[in-house]
């Protein structure tokens, strides 16, 4: 009976983990060693800041980050006036004012990140008909998460012999269908990092992935920190409850 139980449990876990396989028209991204993975994982602050710079200077031209506030950047280690300055670099529409008119003003830390396009139609019109998705949840919204995002960003290549790309498309084996409407966003030296780190494609890709993983899961660090305390507490509690159960039952055997 025991053996069967174990077999049953194993089969059950297998069934749970048996997610649909990677589609044939897409390569499996390699697993990377992220600062934020694992039970004790935290975001590498320097990588987050560099990644924010990559997002600002490259991706923000096409991709919005609507769910993030400027004030959230304090979590990357920026001081209040730095956050204010980042926000003030963008204009937002506000109003109506007392005269009933809409007006624009510099963004405040309490504003969400300002989107590059006013609506999806403009965004499509500017991108060959393709819609650059909002990146606020990108590592949670794709199978493979951060590994996928990194693989996608560094994965551009020449199409294999005989493959005909559609107008305006680039070859990327990690994207479903292998043709993507996003032109290779990163080129060697596309940004100049404030901390002097050489801006290779791999470096920028890893950094912007770290930044976007944080944007997707700003709760991650607090969650894991609290989780460790909770689990340690529960281990002790479980031990105590087991001991008291044994004690209570001891007069029966």
């Amino acid at each position: 009976m025991r053996g069967k139980l174990m077999a049953g449990a194993a089969a059950f876990l297998f069934a749970l983990s048996a997610n649909p396989a990677w589609a044939v028209e897409q390569s499996r991204p390699a697993a990377q060693d992220w600062s934020f993975s694992g039970v004790f994982g935290v975001f590498d602050r320097a990588a987050q800041q560099r990644g924010f710079q990559v997002y600002q200077q490259v991706c923000a031209a096409c991709h919005s980050l609507k769910l993030v506030h400027y004030r959230d950047l304090a979590a990357l280690g920026y001081a209040d006036d730095e956050v204010k300055a980042f926000a003030a670099g963008k204009e937002v529409q506000d109003g109506p004012n007392d005269a009933g008119e809409m007006f624009t003003r510099p963004a405040l830390p309490s504003d969400h990140f300002v989107s590059p396009f006013a609506n999806a139609q403009v965004a499509r019109a500017a991108n060959n008909g393709a819609l650059p998705p909002d990146l606020s949840l990108i590592t949670k919204a794709r199978k493979g998460g951060a590994d996928y995002l990194y693989a996608l960003l560094v994965g551009y290549a020449d199409p294999p012999e005989g493959m005909e790309l559609m107008e305006g498309m680039s070859y990327n084996p990690y994207f479903a269908g292998r043709q993507i409407a996003m032109p290779p966003p990163l080129a060697e030296g596309a940004v100049e990092f404030a901390d002097g780190t050489p801006a290779t494609v791999e470096q920028m890709a890893a950094d912007v992935t770290t930044f976007l993983a944080w944007a997707s899961e700003p709760d991650l660090e607090e969650r894991k920190r609290l989780g460790i305390k909770v689990i340690l507490f529960l281990l002790v509690l479980t031990g105590l409850l087991y001991a008291s159960k044994r004690k209570v039952w001891s007069d029966l055997h």
Partner: peptide, 24 residues
């Protein structure tokens, strides 16, 4: 106290599994 004690212990084990998913 027999099954209250046993159920409490079971509940702690469930919480361990459940919260491991929630936090990690």
């Amino acid at each position: 106290p027999y099954y209250t004690a046993k159920d409490m212990f079971g509940m702690a084990v469930l919480l361990l599994v459940y919260l491991a998913f929630v936090f990690f």
